[in-house]
């Protein structure tokens, strides 16, 4: 289950950002949510990632943070159509308009952190 390794890297990055926020803005800052961009070709199972994330954040500063996922479909560049076209699936790398094959993948491999939402810890007295 490689989602565990992915969750660990994710936590490492988010923790760094949170630490900077705490120094810069507010000691009681917490991570409310993390928004990811996950491509259809990235081979990541969302439920396995959520499970791993909960596991590795237990009893840490990130415990309770929510993972939000933006699904990124695969797009290829079609030469005859002279534009980027979105594929309905990942089994057939042909332009849905003109049926020309293309291996020129423009998106769909993402495994990215988009944003991190920081909030004040409500349980911390002012």
């Amino acid at each position: 289950m490689h989602e565990l390794s992915i969750a660990n890297s994710l936590v490492e990055i988010a923790t760094e950002y949170l630490a900077k926020e705490r120094v810069k803005n507010d000691e009681s800052s917490v991570v409310k949510s993390i928004t990811l961009r996950i491509g259809a070709l990235s081979c990541v199972h969302k439920s396995a990632l959520n499970f791993s994330f909960e596991l590795v954040t237990k009893d840490t500063l990130l415990e309770g943070a929510e993972l939000k996922v933006i699904d990124v479909p695969v797009t290829i560049f079609c030469k005859p159509c002279e534009r980027e076209v979105e594929l309905p699936g990942i089994q057939r790398f042909r332009c849905p308009v003109c049926d020309t094959p293309s291996a020129d993948i423009r998106q769909g491999k993402e495994l990215d952190i988009d944003t991190i939402e920081i909030a004040e810890n409500a349980s911390t007295p002012a």
Partner: peptide, 22 residues
């Protein structure tokens, strides 16, 4: 009055690869 930025959730535009270290 408390600074509004402290109450509003702040969105950090991270935009980085999760496996960037690797």
């Amino acid at each position: 009055p408390p600074e509004p930025a402290m109450i509003e959730p702040r969105i950090l535009e991270v935009r980085t690869k999760i496996l960037k270290k690797n």
